[in-house]
């Protein structure tokens, strides 16, 4: 497969997952933070922007409506849902001949139906729509793509982004009081609440909820699950019969990240959740870089310069 195409598929996966994750994250926190009468609106908005990774500077006082606009529909803001979906569509457009017509039409229609404004009252509906559209995109891929390299790169992108987004989501738990209700909301936003209840049979505690989202081996939105999936994808890309260790950098890094979580206890991680989550995000970006250098070698457009004697 062409490196350029693989790169686009990887990023379609990441952007689709990012749009979904951002929608879930916003949905939770617009409720959690902003409906709290004692919270300082501006500070809350800024911490959320920071967690989501926006670098932009907003000199004036931020309101929840502005925060919603910035992170949902502002195409100029790289962390917004709109920007992610647009980027996914642009990547798909560049590999139009590889992605299925159905996926293309799904991403294209999503972009063209993207609203320009969302009001606080309609926010929940909007996030629901984003979740549906991204689920549709993923569903199309899952149900109609051959399990070839195209699928593997797409899935790899999704898995890594999911690690990143879940890490961000967990990091936000520190933005508010680490009490029961907030964890319920966090679990709900991941669609994990019912699965959690079935597993733990009890009221969510911070420890149990974090453990579930970080370490559960069979819940697909947990970090460990997503890392395992990334590991499988990377192994599929480079079947090896080597007897000694792991030669692929990305694979080694994913494995380290996973075992570092898996072989520690939840309270230990939870004691320092924010920095642990930052470490996880850093890990993901290093893996992404290793994948780029291995499979998408410097493919920047060369600028040819003429020379004549």
């Amino acid at each position: 497969m062409l490196s350029r195409i693989a790169e686009s598929l990887f990023w379609i996966g990441r952007y689709v997952e990012r749009a979904d994750g951002t929608a879930r994250l916003l949905d939770v926190h617009l409720q959690l933070l902003l409906e709290d009468p004692w919270v300082d609106e501006d500070t809350a908005c800024r911490s959320l922007l920071e967690v989501i990774g926006s670098d932009a500077h907003y000199p004036h006082q931020l309101t929840r409506q502005e925060l919603l606009t910035i992170l949902s529909v502002d195409r100029g803001e790289p962390s917004s849902i709109s920007a992610s979906l647009n980027a996914a569509r642009e990547n798909a457009r560049r590999v139009r001949e590889i992605v299925s017509t159905e996926l293309w039409e799904c991403l294209n229609t999503t972009r063209s139906r993207m609203p320009r404004k969302v009001s606080i009252e309609r926010a929940h509906d909007f996030f629901g729509w984003v979740r549906e559209r991204t689920a549709l995109a993923v569903g199309i891929v899952e149900s109609s793509t051959s399990r070839d390299e195209a699928w593997t790169f797409f899935t790899l992108g999704r898995a890594l982004e999911r690690v990143d987004m879940t890490a961000r989501l967990l990091a936000t738990s520190e933005l508010t009081e680490a009490s029961g209700p907030s964890w319920t909301t966090i679990l709900r936003s991941c669609g994990a609440y019912e699965a959690y209840l079935r597993t733990y049979r009890g009221v969510p505690s911070a420890t149990n909820a974090a453990e579930f989202l970080l370490l559960d081996k069979i819940f697909p939105r947990s970090v460990t699950f997503a890392l395992s999936r990334a590991e499988t994808c990377l192994s599929d890309l480079q079947p090896t019969t080597a007897r000694v260790g792991v030669t692929d950098n990305a694979l080694r890094q994913v494995g380290q990240l996973r075992t570092n979580l898996e072989y520690r206890s939840a309270p230990e991680i939870l004691a320092n959740l924010t920095s642990e989550m930052i470490a996880l995000q850093t890990g993901v970006s290093e893996i992404s870089e290793s994948i780029r250098s291995r499979y998408f070698p410097v493919n920047v457009m060369p600028t040819w310069v003429g020379e004549v004697s």
Binding site: L2, S3, R4, I5, R96, E97, I98, V300, M301, P302
Partner: peptide, 8 residues
């Protein structure tokens, strides 16, 4: 067929 660009 593969659709390639110049840089590919």
């Amino acid at each position: 067929l593969e659709l390639v660009e110049g840089r590919d």
